[in-house]
Design a binder for these strands. Structure first.
Lengths: 182, 182
DNA sequence: CACTGATCTGACCGATCGGTCAGGTGCTGA
DNA sequence: TCAGCACCTGACCGATCGGTCAGATCAGTG
């Protein structure tokens, strides 16, 4: 019964990723994760301070890349180049981390409330503004919002589409749909 | 304390709608709803068989319209006209019922599992196919999926945008983004 | 050998969940 | 006057949740 090697930390992460992807963060109990790993719930909480810490560790790489993208967007002085950087960077990120994004499974709103993810909301807002060409027009913001949320919500469903193909399809969609900056 | 008039049923529905919109279906307890109405949890369960019945009644009008749209799409023989009917019908539905759609707040996947909503999954699949121009190309399906999910996920956020304006913005987006049927 | 620290367990905790139940209250019609 | 009904309450239920805790196991070390 006792696991001889202490790679349990990684096993818990992998199991949690599978469960979160299947039933969402809220819909997954620590007992579920422990059951999939084959250890006790107490063992899970030995390796992680609490349930949220598991999610935080799973999302850390994606969040780091998102933050870097935010910096790159902020460095653009022209709305047109900011829009291009935002579109390409976001599609890259969505394709590369579609597995991680899938974990959130529509629990974005609740999860973004948690202190660990608070700054992501601000980054999302800046990403949205850049995609909208820094325009205040309602239609531009609506368009950008639909595309942003749609890509975030669906990219996890295309696990079997090759990176390249998914990237091209999403970029083409953004180019067609986004209002060109005047 | 005792409510003199038996309009409690409607009050519960309204309170549940507010709470679901604020914290999601799962994130709202019967106690929350009862607290907002000012009655006991048992009173809520006197008017509704269970928690799911509240959601079902809230969503019933939107579901009925969705079903009607499905029929209209199925009646189209040409992919091009099916795509047009699907796009216009879906935008209409999203704008008109954006309040109800907002209640689901990203819990689509879980909620669609429930028997009461099982057929909606099939309707969504047919709607997706129609928007994709009944094409099997991955890029067409990806585009349609992103737009469908994006609109469903975001339309509830535009409570303050006039119907007309939101409708025009979404329709313009779909026309730009959807692949024209050959 | 004894000791230590990392790993893990089962039993347990308080809180909350959806839901049940017996009974109280007040209106209505015979 | 009183039976009957719609409406509602507080107390309670079993289940599950995230999290705690004391202690068992075991490999390594002196």
């Amino acid at each position: 019964m006792a696991r001889p090697t202490p790679q349990t930390h990684g096993e818990i992460l992998a199991a949690a990723a599978r469960r979160f992807a299947a039933t969402g963060y809220r819909g997954t109990s620590l007992q579920d994760i422990a059951g999939e790993v084959g250890c006790s719930k107490a063992a899970v909480l030995y390796h992680f301070a609490n349930k949220e810490a598991i999610l935080t560790e799973l999302m850390a790489p994606a969040i780091e890349v998102l933050r870097a993208l935010d910096d790159r967007i902020a460095a653009q002085s022209e709305p047109a180049s900011a829009q291009r950087v935002a579109a390409e960077g976001f599609v890259d990120l969505a394709v590369r981390f579609r597995g991680e994004i899938a974990l959130l499974r529509g629990e974005f709103p609740e999860l973004l409330q948690q202190p660990d993810f608070a700054h992501i909301q601000q980054i999302s807002e800046r990403l949205l503004a850049a995609l909208a060409g820094r325009s205040e027009r309602a239609s531009a913001r609506i368009t950008a919002f639909v595309l942003l949320a749609g890509i975030a919500e669906t990219c996890g469903e295309f696990a079997d589409v090759p990176d390249e193909e998914l990237r091209d399809a999403l970029l083409a969609l953004l180019r067609r749909a986004l209002a060109p900056v005047h």
